[in-house]
Design a protein around this nucleic acid. Structure first.
Lengths: 132, 132
DNA sequence: CTTGCCTTTGACGCATGGGTCAAGGGTTAG
DNA sequence: CTAACCCTTGACCCATGCGTCAAAGGCAAG
């Protein structure tokens, strides 16, 4: 499988695959004699995991910090909480990202409040709407 | 008053003033015979307003869209709601930014929920904390 | 062999709000 | 006059996740 097909199979582009490789998210695949990248099903699966985690708000740096244990964050790897030892997620990456998300949400919410105070008192229901 | 003093008076840097000028937030000031920018108190005041509005989450583009009526968003310009006509804020810039903030907050909150669902069920209190 | 699509690497673009450096000229105190 | 600091414009830098273009070579079908 060359890069175009692998990318299509994973629902993305060749550019993205090379980008992941350059940034240490994807191990360098073997090459054909002429230097073209050759991927297998495992690679495609890993790319899917990468995309899922990125879409969850993790950054490239987060996933790079995970190293090869990226899979530990995967969908079916572990149930959310398996008992008093299952919390040992790789590097606490997800926890750090959660904290960063919390900080950003708090910052934006404060901003919204201050801006709203100037514009007028309409539409204060952000927090409520965010609870959906 | 040359750029360095004006910048200091407004609590920022010469670079920022030139940046604001290039981006249409600050009118081009008159120049000395040798081309150096000359600022007055009005300019300094305007820079302060610009910085306040930027710190409130408005973008440079927002303020540019406001044109010269930037002052209408200023602290003491109008009381928040002066009656059935006072809502006519310049270009609805603030309202649009408010909506954008809401959208971003909602997006991040959803992200947080999804990420938290993977990591475990701890620390769900973002919305609550954001209510402060 | 040729055509046409696929792949390679490298480099620039985007949006944000300036920071920082460079090369050259102004200004002012001593 | 000169040192020392200020100002001028222009251009590259930061982080993010790739998109896009470019030049050049690979690969399979006709």
């Amino acid at each position: 499988m060359r890069i175009g097909d692998a990318a299509a199979a994973a629902g993305t582009t060749p550019r993205a695959l090379r980008f992941y490789e350059q940034n240490g998210l994807l191990p360098p695949p073997r090459r054909t004699a002429t230097g073209q990248r050759e991927y297998g099903h495992r690679d495609v699966a890993r790319v899917r995991v990468i995309r899922t985690l990125l879409s969850l708000g993790l950054t490239v740096a987060d996933l790079r910090d995970c190293g090869d244990r990226l899979d530990l964050l995967e969908d079916d790897a572990l149930p959310p909480y398996g008992g008093p030892g299952a919390c040992s997620r790789p590097s606490g990456v997800a926890e750090r990202r959660l904290a960063a998300l919390d900080a950003e949400i708090t910052r934006l919410t404060r901003l919204r409040e201050r801006l709203a105070a100037r514009v007028g008192a309409q539409a204060q229901g952000v927090s409520d709407r965010s609870r959906s």
